[in-house]
Nucleic acid binder design. Structure first.
Lengths: 139, 139
DNA sequence: ATCGGTATTGCACCTGGTCGCAATTATACT
DNA sequence: AGTATAATTGCGACCAGGTGCAATACCGAT
């Protein structure tokens, strides 16, 4: 429930709509499409407009409560786990998500910074590809 | 002009619209947004519908003539250079694109496959972040 | 408890991109 | 050159997501 606290600390208003959105992110999976959030929220409070939801999600991202990432065309939101950061590997065939440790990326991050002076923002990247099952399926 | 050859080889029709789209990809930058392509094509042939352009781009991607990648919300197309693959680092602040060698990613690719059995599809990833200049600007 | 100001909402509209469909056209065959 | 036919086009409708604006509601001060 730290999301609520974060909003309060920033002097933002705690509207019923926002509570519902925060609830959705906590209650359901950690891997939510915008559409799933909209459905969940509107099931309880049908008037809530999608733009309100997108705006709230944007806010929560801005204040570090959720991560937004693009998988294929759609946006997917991950509730931020304060204990440890991790990256996500999403299978483009079955949709399965694997959390992987951020250590894997630190080397790459470092060498790209050294060679090109470029600072990749890995927090906002979700890698897509094929998981083990789907890879073998296609053979 | 190998794109044209590729289309012919696949038994696809060579329409004036398609010629224009292929021209655009060759003539202009290697780093084109869909919108830039649409503008370029419609400047010469105004009736060409955006859906035709998107469909052709999809085809060209399918047959390996271009790479499509998502930067922020928009789609960006890169003309494929047959000589060597490389990855793209796009600065989210100034839009500058850096081509980087694929060797940087092979280690990461390998270790993710070993640890998680996951095969990241790096061909379709464009990393965003901050280039040297923009990073220093914000300080 | 109520009041005022600012944050937030819902709405209507916009944008990039996709899709089904009927009309058109590039090509292969005669 | 003329024709058959399957691929392709343009169109309009649609989708997810975003924006400006007027109306509303949260919350701190009274």
């Amino acid at each position: 429930m730290s999301c609520i606290k974060t909003l309060k600390e920033k002097g933002l208003k705690l509207t019923p709509q926002r509570r519902l959105i925060v609830d959705a992110i906590h209650d359901i999976d950690t891997n939510l499409t915008a559409e799933e959030i909209i459905t969940h929220v509107q099931a309880r409070m049908p008037e809530v407009h999608k733009s309100t939801i997108y705006r709230t999600l944007e806010l929560l991202e801005k204040y570090g409560c959720v991560f937004k990432s693009e998988v294929g065309e759609r946006s997917v939101y991950h509730h931020v786990d304060e204990r440890h950061h991790h990256h996500h590997l999403v299978c483009s065939s079955c949709g399965k998500t694997i959390e992987c440790d951020e250590d894997f990326f630190t080397n790459l991050e470092k060498s790209l910074a050294e060679k090109y002076g470029f600072n990749v923002d890995f927090k906002h990247i979700v890698m897509s590809g094929l998981c083990e099952k789907c890879k073998n399926k296609n053979k």
